[in-house]
């Protein structure tokens, strides 16, 4: 099957492209610094101000989710941008013609990009998620607030947080193919993440729970569907799969049809 859908050579070509792009390393650096740095900063502040915390806040405190807040948005956006540019930069420079002249079955190119970008960002996302988790728990250990990976929902939350990075990168890749302009595709991607929850929020929780941001928040917390009206884990997974599936399907459809 891999022979038919993605020949190894095409896969190798996309892998060379990804690992020889400077923005790839920049993304890795920004992601690691943001996730670990901001995560440690937030948790450090929390530990320092612990005595000032109200009883309700203390009850609702999620020791896993808390470390994934601020810095992780930077990770998701940096990696999403990387996903976009792996496709849009080729359209912008005209290199897409060289690529399609070498591999006229364009879906093979697209499939190879999906495998390479998806695989690389999954590894990156998981490494950063676990590193952030362990760093955060080490900080919380001072106040004996830490949890282990074996506690309920913790492993799921960490794994899903890492995997969401891949989800976002793949949606970015698909948007890069569909929009073909880096700036436009990034705007669409950020809009999907930040604006969609606000717009749909007005229409009620059910619709809002279909957005990526809500799914991400649900998946990265250990409390699951809570009072804040978050979607359940299953719903969040389905929402992610639907967004990725639709984005990839549309991209695979247009990539064959358009002149370059």
């Amino acid at each position: 099957m891999s022979r038919v859908l993605v020949p190894r050579g095409v896969l190798a070509a996309e892998w060379i492209k990804l690992r020889t792009l400077r923005s790839t390393y920049f993304t890795v650096l920004v992601s690691a610094v943001a996730a670990l740095g901001l995560g440690a900063f937030d948790l450090g502040n929390l530990v320092a101000d612990r005595d000032a915390m109200s009883a309700e806040r203390r009850a609702a405190f999620d020791p896993v989710r808390f470390g994934f807040s601020g810095g992780y948005y930077v990770v998701v956006l940096a990696v999403g941008t990387l996903g976009v540019s792996t496709a849009s930069s080729e359209y912008g420079s005209g290199l897409i013609r060289t690529t399609f002249t070498a591999v006229p079955r364009r879906r093979r190119v697209f499939a190879a990009k999906v495998v390479v970008v998806g695989g690389a960002t999954l590894v990156l996302g998981e490494v950063i998620a676990f590193a952030t988790f362990f760093l955060g728990q080490a900080i919380l250990a001072d106040e004996h607030l830490e949890v282990g990976l074996g506690a309920p929902h913790v492993l799921r939350a960490v794994l899903a947080t890492g995997a969401f990075v891949m989800v976002f990168a793949l949606i970015g890749l698909a948007l890069g193919v569909i929009v073909r302009h880096t700036a436009g595709a990034i705007a669409a991607l950020f809009g999907l993440f930040f604006v969609a929850p606000m717009v749909t929020g007005a229409a009620g929780d059910r619709l809002r729970n279909g957005t990526l941001q809500q799914a991400f928040q649900a998946l990265s917390s250990t409390t699951g569907a809570d009072a804040a009206g978050r979607p359940s884990t299953v719903t969040a997974v389905v929402v992610c799969l639907l967004w990725v599936g639709v984005a990839l399907a549309v991209a695979a459809w247009v990539i064959e049809r358009r002149d370059v």
């Binding site: 020949p7 050579g9 095409v10 190798a12 070509a13 996309e14 060379i16 492209k17 020889t20 792009l21 400077r22 923005s23 930069s89 420079s93 005209g94 290199l95 013609r97 060289t98 690529t99 002249t101 070498a102 591999v103």
Partner: peptide, 25 residues
Amino acid sequence: LLDADAVPAGRSAYHHLASIAASND
């Protein structure tokens, strides 16, 4: 050769050629 300006700005000539070569074994 369609468009000489179509070069990858951030990649070396060697890696550019290497990726294209890989795609066709």
